[in-house]
Design a protein around this nucleic acid. Structure first.
Lengths: 229, 229
DNA sequence: ACCTGTTAGTGTAAATTCAACACTAACAGG
DNA sequence: CCTGTTAGTGTTGAATTTACACTAACAGGT
């Protein structure tokens, strides 16, 4: 079946910048393209929007098809529509950024992708299309947003130590934070729930595990509380 | 001429939420639709993206065609793509928000629009499509962004009094600010250039006029300065 | 000339928040 | 029991933010 239109229409795709956190590194998930154009080069996962699916759904579907990732945090980033950004024809892409817990997820390459791999955010290979600008914008947005929204917890295991949380901010913001001031601030917010567990298998005093208390956070939000690191 | 595609493609449009500032009110520019669907109801200006123009260019073109506005501040907001948002067929729209100086611009209705009119942001008529959600998001974004980027100056005349500037923030943020603290903060930033003029035609002591000093602002930015109200 | 109404323009003190900084406790492993 | 490593904890000074009220200037009307 073919479709006829009176005017030429751009094709519409979605693409996802997927961030994951390794103990000391912020990583991005890339796929090696299995088809033209840019066959064999690296790109962020994505693909065409189907005619009856919403953009968010398309982004989730493509992400699962190409990398196997499901149920991740996903947020729309920006829409890129420079006329020559795809050499084949006019393609407008709605870019998303996603946050995943590396600990929870196994990644596997699939449809259209030879392989999917995590790359350190400041050691990326050459990328297809304008994907370097998309990643750049996603990284800027993550850095800005992580400071005033509790996004960071999406990157950590459900239970985490304060040390892990601090490290997360240090890695994303790319600067050191003072341990005592950090703990004072974050515990003072009362959005962390202390568990009665401590971390396991460490060769030193084990740190207490905390959980992000989403309910408490939402309640505080309704009272005008403003998260900020 | 017609175009044939193997798969059905969504149509792609751009829409603009245009803000203007009246002395005591934040306004939005709406057009009365001259054609189906929603003929006769109010909508934000916008239209189809042409095959070889970038999204920003399309937004500017549509804005000029429908309202006569040129050279306004314009920034991409969000892309709306719910499958049923347009009753005719699948239409994805890239929404923008724009800031204009009401003092500088005459608005005139044109192509496809019976008329263009300014409405107070908290007294809007019923709107076509999902334009109420688009406006809502634009308004939220303006409120958030005006606090940490010097966007406000786009809404004021080139030369303005501190009183006007304060009123602008009060109207947009919808809360009162302390006059002395406001002046201290804004003058302390050293991003305003004092002119040797004062306002004219007022029945009381005339206030000094200032200009936003974009050069000074950019210089400060490079040095890590962070604007914040 | 002067009275009235209205807004311009200005400083200080208290409260709060932020930044800097170092030691003891706990525990695993050898 | 010794070693190495990280957990966990308060205080002080500096900087920032908030609250708050009076005189000066000027146009317009009498």
């Amino acid at each position: 079946m073919t479709f006829r239109y009176q005017y030429a229409r751009p094709a519409l795709t979605v693409d996802c910048v997927v961030f994951g956190l390794d103990d000391e590194d912020l990583k991005i998930l890339l796929i090696e393209r299995g088809g033209a154009p840019f066959e064999g080069s690296w790109a962020i996962p994505g693909g065409f929007v189907e005619i009856d699916e919403s953009l968010d759904v398309a982004a989730r579907r493509e992400l699962e098809e190409e990398t196997g990732l499901k149920k991740v945090f996903l947020e729309q980033l920006y829409t890129f529509g420079a006329p020559q950004r795809d050499p084949r024809e006019r393609v407008v892409t709605v870019a998303y950024f996603a946050l995943v817990r590396l600990s929870d997820h196994k990644v596997k390459a699939a449809t259209d992708a030879r392989q999917a791999l995590w790359f350190s955010v400041d050691d990326l290979p050459k990328l297809a299309f304008d994907h370097d600008s998309i990643i750049q914008m996603a990284h800027d947005r993550l850095q800005a947003k992580v400071r005033y929204q509790p996004l960071g917890f999406e990157l950590l295991p459900q239970k985490f130590t304060l040390r892990q949380l601090q490290q997360l901010y240090e890695v994303i913001l790319d600067r050191e934070l003072d341990k005592r001031n950090f703990r004072k601030k974050i515990l003072g917010m009362e959005i962390l729930e202390e568990t009665d567990e401590v971390e396991a298998d460490v060769a030193h005093r084990a740190a207490r595990l905390y959980r992000f208390d989403k309910k408490a956070y939402r309640k505080l939000m309704r009272q005008g509380f403003h998260f900020e690191i």
